[in-house]
Amino acid sequence: MRYISVFPIVAILCILFGSAFTGLVIAPGVASDVVRAPSVGLVAYSPSEAKGRKIYAREGCVYCHSQQVRNVKADENLVAAFGVSKAGDYFYDLPHFLGTSRQGPDLSNEGRVWRREIGAPARDYLIGHFINPRQYNPNSIMPAFDYLSTQELSDLTDYIQSLGAWKDNVKVAAAGL
């Protein structure tokens, strides 16, 4: 008798929480074709890119940089230049770096801006910018990552240059067909 007024509360709470759990956790996993398949042409990270990704996580780049282009007016320029991000683009991302803030620019297509084909100038720019962003943009509020080792800077640059780069290859392949 003494549990009588607590038990129903607990039971109803479990049902309410359980329904949200089903809707937001189980259902997206079951709808695997949308969420769990990689985009066409997506390549997995190379070992150095994966290391760079770890540095990206460790140094908290995600707190200032998003990695998603939305189909909205505020992203019009990004959509025009790079297209809208799709679920499959993130297949290999663990953890995800979608981000919630844009103190700095969106980086999901940074590898198509500072392309690998440019060679040394692109790498030098990116590494120089990591070490001292204010040398390139005096107003920048990006922290200076001058404490990273040469190897770490190189891995990080590999990772940044991989972002979205595969999309260009897909385009090239499509044009060649």
Binding site: V10, L13, L24, V25, P28, R36, Y92, D93, L94, H96
Partner: peptide, 30 residues
Amino acid sequence: LLAIIPFPIYYTLGNASKFSGIEDAIINWF
């Protein structure tokens, strides 16, 4: 009661799960 009952479930899910990509994002925000 609402605070203490479901916490262990979503906390473990959020911190220990190893999903990737968008599924990870959805679970992260859940």
